[in-house]
């Protein structure tokens, strides 16, 4: 073993005064072979073929060409699912953010004294967080039926888990001085939290809410693919029928909507912080 190791070791460097120093072995010696093997295996497993990429890749531009010009008359059919998508995101974000407040309180190190409660809530949240939003939507479609309600619930639960984690980390770093003052005045822990900790964090809280809302608009657009309502539903259908001018309009409208909401949200968030 030692002999093999020595084979890969770089040559020792001798200084002019006779001192010898042994450079370390580069990690590339084992990292490169492992990465190469994994890449080759992935190519085989996924059926990735460069030939196909060259033979069929141009189709992308055919579709793109088909989308231009978009069919503006189709907007009549688009605005309703678009509105549903936005409303799903708003409602889901509101539900998730509201639920996140008490959940973050009981997950935070400085507010919650019971280690048991903290452990249970944090464990529960990490389990739920492992579900991608599409999986949640699939589950809720079975529970609540096809439509925007399932999508709203998926967004709500997804936002809840993310908001809770982001927000309890903020609570952990809040200034505890005012909290101590409130406790010494005879307030309960919840009252002290609400009056001494939350006023420090409202700006950051609403900024997080808006950030999640931005994310949810994009999420909501795709939820239609699993039957959870919104604009994804007609996008799936039009693509299936290969009516590219309609697809073009849907994508254009989505782009404009997401861009407008993101710029608006960014402007507000700058004011909040």
């Amino acid at each position: 073993m030692e002999r093999i190791k020595r084979l890969f070791l770089p040559k020792p460097i001798t200084l002019s005064n006779g001192k010898v120093i042994q450079p370390k072995m580069s990690p590339a010696i084992y990292v490169v072979p492992i990465l190469t093997f994994m890449t080759l295996y992935s190519i085989q497993l996924t059926g990735f073929k460069l030939a196909t990429l060259f033979r069929r890749g141009y189709q992308f531009f055919v579709i793109l060409d088909g989308m231009i010009p978009p069919n503006f008359a189709y907007f009549e059919k688009v605005w309703e699912p678009l509105l549903a998508t936005i409303m799903m995101s708003i409602l889901g974000t509101v539900i998730g953010s509201l639920l996140a407040l008490p959940a973050a309180y009981i997950s935070s190190e400085n507010m919650m004294k019971s280690k048991f409660v903290k452990f249970i809530t944090k464990a529960f949240l990490s389990v739920v967080r492992t579900f991608p939003i599409l999986v949640l939507a699939l589950l809720f479609r079975i529970i609540f039926g096809i439509g925007a309600f399932a999508g709203t619930m998926a967004i709500g639960i997804f936002t809840f888990t993310i908001m809770t984690k982001m927000f309890y980390e903020l609570i952990d770093t809040a200034d505890m001085g005012p909290f101590e003052a409130l406790m010494s005045s005879g307030a309960s822990r919840i009252q002290a939290f609400w009056v001494a900790i939350m006023p420090q964090l409202w700006g950051q809280y609403f900024s997080l809410v808006l950030y999640n809302f931005e994310m949810n608009i994009r999420n909501a657009a795709i939820l239609g693919y699993v039957g959870a309502g919104g604009i994804g539903l007609i996008l799936n259908e039009r693509l299936g029928w290969r009516v590219y001018p309609d697809v073009g309009l849907i994508l254009l409208v989505m782009m404009i909507t997401v861009y407008m909401i993101e710029s608006l949200s960014r402007t507000i968030r700058k004011k909040l912080l």
Binding site: G177, L182, S185, Q191, A192, P199
Partner: peptide, 23 residues
Amino acid sequence: VFQSFNLVKRTSVIKNVLAARVA
């Protein structure tokens, strides 16, 4: 009363004083 005042710096003076009534 504390050395570092322990006020909520981001809110108004009156809200800080009213906090004493919360209990």
